[in-house]
Design a protein around this nucleic acid. Structure first.
Lengths: 222, 222, 222, 222
DNA sequence: AATGAATGAGAATTCATTCAT
DNA sequence: AATGAATGAATTCTCATTCAT
């Protein structure tokens, strides 16, 4: 341990990695079993530490969960906000990017299980629901709205009720995440998320755009 | 009874009404909180009885839940099976009836919460999941399939892969139920189930029908 | 029911038999499962009545048990007391009768299970233990003692410490009852109660008698 | 620790001692009250810990009980097996040792209460009965049988039906344990276990031996 | 007399959280 | 920093007893 040659002893290597490992373990188990049914002991065990260690990094179960959300979902929103703020191209392209990237980072990953979990357990854990509304839903909505407003401001999108349009965009993505974690495991034959989202984007753009510059896919959904 | 001094008896004999009252209370709470988070004591209290009384009627939590499913969902499948077996009109009309009626009896009622609950907790309660697969999912699938086969046999529907088509029909209805109990409570603005289903039916029929006899916008669901 | 011809309607036939039926059912179940593990509901069911009816005849579980003891064991003691009081023959013969009859009426019957039960559960139910000591053990001991005293008084038995001799006589009978309900059910090969008791009586008599008038069996225990 | 103000810690770390303390407490209470009537909370309290702590060491009540049996009874069988296997002297001496040692280690200790308990409650807890048959009764029987077979093989004991002889040896020891925990507490005057067993051994040996080498009253049990 | 629905205290077990080491 | 032993509130289920009918 007092290694004079500056070689890091094995046990120290993990020092900073600990919280990450715990968050990863927690994400896995929360997604697999839900919030209430996930035992902190199992989280600790999966991360290879003891139950007590978990409490060194997270005040309690609720804070652990919040940390998981903050690590697995919130950054994607921040990145999207930045991308939108600095993007200079056509809004149609931006919208495509936002939706595709959202799916890649959240929908396709385990993080989407968090959304499903919250839908299932929100009523049992009002504090968690509140937190999720505050830090995820409203920020994500604001992000989408700002993107739409940009399109309208630049004359690329038709004038619209931004709030409603935001919901309309979010709904199918949410649904897809729900699907993936509820029916999906039983039956993968039906929905092809990527294709579904591409099609959705096209449909929306055909509706949103003032001219046909965003086009591409034929929006005959059937 | 007829006690002139208004003294309340410790309990009131309800006999035959009890099971129904208990099932109703259980349905409410299961839908509201999920399976694991529903306390039997609360179910009893909501039905106006004590913990012990519940056990007079249902062996344990699992059996109570099964009874709720058997009362709130299974009969609708049986009725649909009968309707299909005795129906003599065009298959397009039959399909409209099945979908519309399913929504009325299950989707629009609290019973739809049961489906959502199972999707959320199936992995934590394998026995319940098995039960639901056996008594609900397979029967409902068989019912839908038989309806499609009828249409094909009568030359009204195009030949098709019945299993896939069954899934395609079930999926949106399931999704709608999920939605209602997850996102719906937060935001009712977006999805109008009845309209959505009418549209879905029309779209499917345009795909299924060999000729255009199934009509277009005449979504007289009854 | 107001049968004018004096024919007893069927349901009334059992009127007086009820307590007996309940006691019989209780004896069976107490012996089979022990005191604590016997459910009053099962007793009632076995007697073909409802739980509530049981409480019409017996104040509570403890009183039911006492009644079982009073019906199945205590009378045998009374009868023996009477027999002893009125018996005029030789004390050796009396002793043989008492031991043989005790086995017939108690040891060989289910009632012996009550003794075993009490030995197992006495410490958990001090009131029951007290009751049993008062109404069974001391009376039976007194009965045996009086018989021995009679023999001594009539010069048939040697003078002795009556209390010790009483214990010495009771112990093997008790042991036999214990055996029957503990090891016996697993293995009937070894002990032949009747023969064992006959031998015991002979051995005791050879020790007790002032002369060899009581003899018979060779007391070589092997 | 070393707290100068004498404040007691909420609990004290005992680690390795805990299981033993819990087993000791459990043995006490099981013997005193029986299996069903022993409350785990009381076991914990007697060991000076809380309910939950018990579950750190034993999965449930049944496993706790099995552990008690495995600790308090099973090793004595193993030791006897070893002793028999390595013993080189006359079989009569071996038999004396086995019986005397059995009484010392099991019969005279609280462990004998476990046998009594099982006889009383076996029918209510079939799993426990099975376990006891498998891990205690059959092993002990085999041990006794092997000892008898050794005597026969070496020409020291007469040929015999080993199974019956095994039962004949076990029965009185069992009985003595039963006695100790049922009648014994009420009345210690009668049976003197050590003397009784010495006598038993002698009687058996007189029957078993081919010659008189096993001696008469020299009941030097060690 | 008879019923059986209803009660509620009590026992086993689980798990988030604390804290001495 | 890390551990893991210890805690105790909470939950499911049981059963002796009560009481309106």
């Amino acid at each position: 341990m007092n290694c004079p040659f500056g070689i890091k002893p094995r046990w120290e290597r993990r020092k900073d990695a600990r919280p990450q490992e715990l968050l990863a373990a927690a994400l896995d188990l929360f997604v697999e079993h839900g919030y209430a049914a996930t035992r902190l002991e199992d989280v600790a065990r999966r991360a290879g530490v003891s139950k007590g260690t978990l409490y060194l990094y997270f005040e309690n179960k609720e804070e652990l969960f919040k940390a998981v959300v903050r690590e697995s979902i919130v950054p994607a929103i921040g990145d999207a906000e930045e991308y939108i703020a600095s993007f200079e191209g056509p809004s149609a392209e931006l919208l495509r990017w936002v939706i595709a990237t959202w799916w890649e980072r959240i929908g396709a990953s385990k993080a989407s299980g968090i959304s499903k979990l919250l839908m299932a357990e929100a009523s049992n854990f009002p504090d968690l629901a509140q937190f999720y509304r505050d830090e995820v839903i409203s920020r994500a909505s604001a992000m989408i709205s700002s993107m739409l407003e940009r399109g309208v401001a630049r004359g690329e999108f038709k004038p619209m009720d931004i709030n409603v349009a935001t919901q309309v965009l979010i709904a199918p993505v949410l649904m897809l995440m729900l699907w993936k974690h509820s029916v999906g495991p039983c039956d993968q034959r039906i929905l092809e998320p990527q294709a579904y989202l591409a099609q959705l984007t096209d449909m929306v753009l055909h509706g949103l755009l003032t001219t046909e510059q965003g086009g591409g896919g034929c929006a005959d959904t059937r």
